[in-house]
Amino acid sequence: MADAGRLAGFERRGRTAVAIDGLRAYLLIAGMWIRSTMVYRTSFVLMAVGNFAMTALDFAAVAIIFGHTRVLGGFTLTETAFLYGSSGVALGLADLVVGNLDQLGRRVRDGTMDTLLVRPVPVYAQATADRFALRRLGRLTQAAVVLGWSMTRIDVAWTAVDVLLVPVMLVSGAAIFAAVYTIGAAFQFWANDAAEVQNSFTYGGNALTQYPPTVFAKDLVRGATFVVPLAFVNWMPALHILGRGNPLRLPGWVDFCSPLVALATCALAGFAWRTGLRSYRSTGS
């Protein structure tokens, strides 16, 4: 018994050590990529501005829509902007940190995956840091600006819980999106040119959650709650802050479940990643 306990303890310490090792490698490799991109400074600026503008035009569409109507699905422009901003920040964070996982299929195809497997640091850290691109800050900045603007305008009597819920929502949302990226990447170990499927859930999930849930068919909202839990990225906590009822009439405590859902999806993503990597290592393709 004592032995088993000691072994389990060792195992736990081992995992923490691996995580720290991975984080350190991630930062080292990401730093190299930042310096690499800074060799082409003009290109970097163009891409960052482009990323910003791409999402800004996206919001221009929202603004044009609200030029034609005061409410959409019962939500005003500022309320929709709050949803838009919170979803955008969550995706932007995930995209910045692990967004390059969509290159995994390419690495599997051209065989450069192998060069990651012979280094003494976790493959996940290397694959996520691969081609780390600060230009993705463009998207994040744009979403943050919209979110900040909406928070000064929405008609909310901010309580302490509401204020605390905002960062919790953003971090949980980013974690859920990161898990989706990871599961998508794991899937590419088998179907190495199906990278686009994960866009459906990342960019598609973003397109979904930036509008009020009342806009969509109930079945779609159910799917986004119970199957792919994108509703927990922002809808659930944001609707609580906005003082709106739950679209599926779920009990009130569900509004606070985002962190738990994020943990669960991340655990699932970890499992998917390990399974994918194991399959790659047994088939080599």
């Binding site: 040119d193 199906a194 866009n199 960019y203 397109a207 509008y211 806009v215 969509f216």
Partner: peptide, 21 residues
């Protein structure tokens, strides 16, 4: 096929927002 799936998902999301508008 992956692309068709993505186009379809986006189509649904945008079609509902247009319907609302």
């Amino acid at each position: 096929l992956a692309g068709v799936f993505t186009n379809t998902v986006f189509g649904f999301v945008v079609a509902y927002t247009y319907t609302a508008l």
